[in-house]
Nucleic acid binder design. Structure first.
Lengths: 342, 342
DNA sequence: GTGAAAGCGCTAACAA
DNA sequence: TTGTTAGCGCTTTCAC
């Protein structure tokens, strides 16, 4: 950790040519073969690497994109980040992680911090999307892509997924399995995911081909296993116990499985359980969770691609990408071979 | 996304004072109260925010720290990153995520990229630590903190954890439960975690107070559930089947539970299983996994603190922090109330 | 206490 | 093709 970095001026002196020629020979165009050769050699001898800051100042481009999220650590967000990184890294962009979690920073503050000019754009997953946020994004000095609700009608590029449709798929799946009473285990209704999933359930059970006998709804305090256990107990203790529980995410679904086991109920025999997000957690759970994938990595990739477009033309019209959902059927709804399903 | 950012010069003009005074009034010292007032007002009117790049160039400080890891997405790494972020963010540092995963970039290349000068330091978790890597780190133009093996004797600040001792704790735990035959389910031996955990197991079973009847060892192809199932099957199919399996991480432990269920064995009654890393995955698994915490978040925090020290004095002597391990006893070894333990 | 000016490392417009 | 020079936005000597 002792070596000092060489500057372009030093390379120029070493090569015995001008600063401009040196710059051109290394990055730009219009340098003779001999010049390139000469400068390259000098640069190599000095172990030269272009200074990112000097370059940024001149080019007005940081080659950095921020990824802002409430709680880095949430498996779904991590998966999204992976997708973002996968697309941006090959284009020379670095990903700066910003989190509202550990400091008392709000999403609005994160967006405001963009005025510092340390990134060329921001991909954000807001917990709630209200008018104030939309306003904030409109004021942002760099392109912002939102993952969550569709917002292109408000002039903001966004990536969404039809979680409502995903809930519908889960409901139809358990009904097709012959389940008669469907419980819906949702998270807080005042969140974006909570409200859209509720809508999905309501639509699914009011469809004319919905053939089950009845439904029950329980709202957990948040999207965690603990809250899921709590709420699932209530669901299972209803006079007419559900024989299927559609949960709004995998953590709630795991809570539902636990609550069922507490009561000596077998999953999926007595009660089928579905999750949402298709996390690794759910995939290795016992029983493996039937879950609706919202294409997390793909949402990240899509957002990153939108961002790449915006970095080229910040005033391009707002785009809107919807990533499809997919139901993965596993042991928590279908006893696949009887030996390890419960 | 249309607003343009004001520069310090504009603020100076607006306030009708010099550039120097403006800068001093906003950040520095030695400005009169009236001046501060005046400049603040002008800055507020223009919505001024200092440009991070111009500032960096002048101060030779980016306020960014890189976090480099093979595979962002690994839950353990995510937890570490959370710890890092938690410590660095309040100090005004941003965290830049670098991953060797999706591009063909090696750890060595990531370290080399530090010559670009876009961060003030790097926290890295190398997959393998050989002499070449140590050499590379010695050449790095900014402070580097390694999470993994202890390396302060090589002049590199590092954070480690005694996973060998952790395996020992797990072994003693199952023995204290009265288990007679202990199986060790390890991951690849040519990795840093694999080799130290093997050492831990060997030491534990050769201790003179080790009172079990026998041991078996199986090495999985990698640290995943699938590989764990595979290797655990072999362990369970031995002539003298183990009544306890100590796994080298939570994913392998989950594989062991699965393999046991396949054979109609009950966990923990027929076979007790322990994991390592104490991931959320293990905590919500069914049965909840007894696991040895290696203090992931704390390792991240410790590394971040070391880094903060190094940013103040890059030539300070290399420090070495060891984060303690802790055994969390849960349902996979102790049937806690009979109702939901398996 | 305040202002003028230099310069961090780089690229690009302009001149030769 | 090559060199000279200005300037990106900022902080900090240095004079006053």
């Amino acid at each position: 950790m002792t070596s000092t970095r060489a500057t372009l001026i030093q390379v120029a002196e070493r090569a015995g040519v001008s600063l401009a020629s040196t710059s051109r020979a290394l990055h730009g165009t219009g340098a003779s073969k001999a010049m390139v050769e000469r400068v390259r050699a000098a640069a190599a001898e000095l172990g030269y690497s272009a200074d990112a800051i000097g370059r940024s100042l001149r080019l007005k481009k940081t080659s950095q994109i921020a990824f802002a999220v409430a709680d880095i650590g949430n498996p779904v967000y991590v998966e999204i980040m992976r997708g973002i990184h996968e697309v941006l890294a090959p284009h020379g962009y670095r990903v700066v992680v910003m989190s509202t979690g550990d400091t008392a920073t709000s999403t609005a503050e994160l967006i405001h911090s963009l005025h510092g000019g340390f990134v060329d754009g921001m991909i954000v997953i807001p917990l709630r999307t209200d008018d104030e946020l939309i306003e904030q994004i409109g004021q942002a000095p760099v392109p912002v892509v939102v993952i969550g609700r569709a917002m292109s009608d408000r002039g903001i590029s966004s990536v969404s997924t039809d979680s409502a449709a995903g809930i519908g798929a889960a409901v139809r799946h358990v009904v097709s399995l012959g389940r008669r009473r469907i419980g819906f285990l949702n998270g807080p209704l005042d969140t974006t995911p909570g409200s859209s999933r509720q809508r999905g359930f309501d639509e699914a059970v009011s469809a004319k081909d919905f053939s089950a006998e009845g439904t029950d709804v329980e709202v957990a305090a948040d999207f965690t296993v603990a809250a899921g256990i709590e709420a699932a107990r209530k669901l299972l203790d209803r006079p007419h116990r559900p024989d299927a529980i559609v949960a709004a995410n995998d953590l709630l679904a795991i809570g539902a499985v636990r609550a069922a086991r507490e009561r000596g109920l077998s999953v999926p025999r007595d009660v089928a359980v579905t999750g949402m997000d298709d996390t690794e957690l759910g995939q290795v759970f016992l029983p493996r969770l039937t879950s609706v994938s919202l294409g997390s990595a793909e949402r990240g990739r899509a957002a990153a691609r939108l961002m790449l477009g915006l970095t080229e033309d910040a005033d391009a019209p707002a785009q809107q990408i919807s990533v499809g959902t997919e139901l993965f059927v596993r042991e928590s709804t279908v006893d696949q071979n009887g030996e390890d399903a419960e």
